[in-house]
Amino acid sequence: MLLIVEQFLNGLQLGVMLFLMSAGLTLVFGIMRVINLAHGSFYMVGAYVAATLVHQSGSFLFGLAGALLVTALLGMVVERVVLQRLYARDHLDQVLATFGLILLFNESTRMIWGRQPLFMDVPDWLSHTVELIPGAPYPSYRLAIIVVGMLVSVFLYLLFTRTRLGMQIRAGASNREMIAALGVNINRLYTLVFGLGALLAGLAGVMAGPILAVESGMGESILILTFVVIVIGGIGSIRGALIAALLVGMVDTLGRAFLPALFRLFLPVAQADGVGASFASMSAYILMAAVLVWRPRGLFPVAGS
């Protein structure tokens, strides 16, 4: 029972991270119709910058602020310098150019920070455990991630439903021609959306820093799960991204935790662990396949995409 609660929270935490990654990226896909593989790089850069600043200054919040600033700026620069030239191109060109960006970013971080992974400490004020239910201590840092993710969801919800910018972005996701007709400065909107997406990815990276090793290429392992989330949620749909992110986070975490045990019920232990591990590693993708068979355009398809 306690294990289940713990794994459930872990799943929630992965789901929140995936949501931060996919919220920005699904907008970039939906509004600009550009496929961006380099989104994971912002995650990585966020983690590296935060790790460095925290190490230098000793302040987690300072590191966080610096990382958000750097990733948002980096995102906007990348949009202006490379992505903007790709909007009119076909998806293949976009894939290859952003693939080039990944190589550049990954190798640059290796040159700057070396090949050894960096480690980032959990800030003191979050290094305790909390007993959500008696007898089940849970690290407060992981809990903080979940809280931050929820706050960001609320923030995005308010942004999209209550602000002019949010309306424009939503309109852009479903009807590009319309926002142009309304006289919105498309280029500026695109740059802002891209910057916002990069910032959210950077935030995810900072929060992942103390949990995972900060290393070159760390962005890609989460990027591909992010793609799974976007495919399941439907390209361009924030709501879809949220639900799919939580779903994928749960399936992946619970699969890893419980599938081997499940297979032990009817297979010899050694074999069960092997088969269970195999299925656990594939569970998110099997979920994606199932959704595809059922709804090829995702759970919340956005008109026009």
């Binding site: 191109r89 080039g100 190798e107």
Partner: peptide, 14 residues
């Protein structure tokens, strides 16, 4: 070498 290969790719595409 990937620091050279990455921008080269972007150039090829563009």
């Amino acid at each position: 070498w990937m620091v050279i290969m990455g921008p080269f790719l972007i150039g090829v595409v563009l």
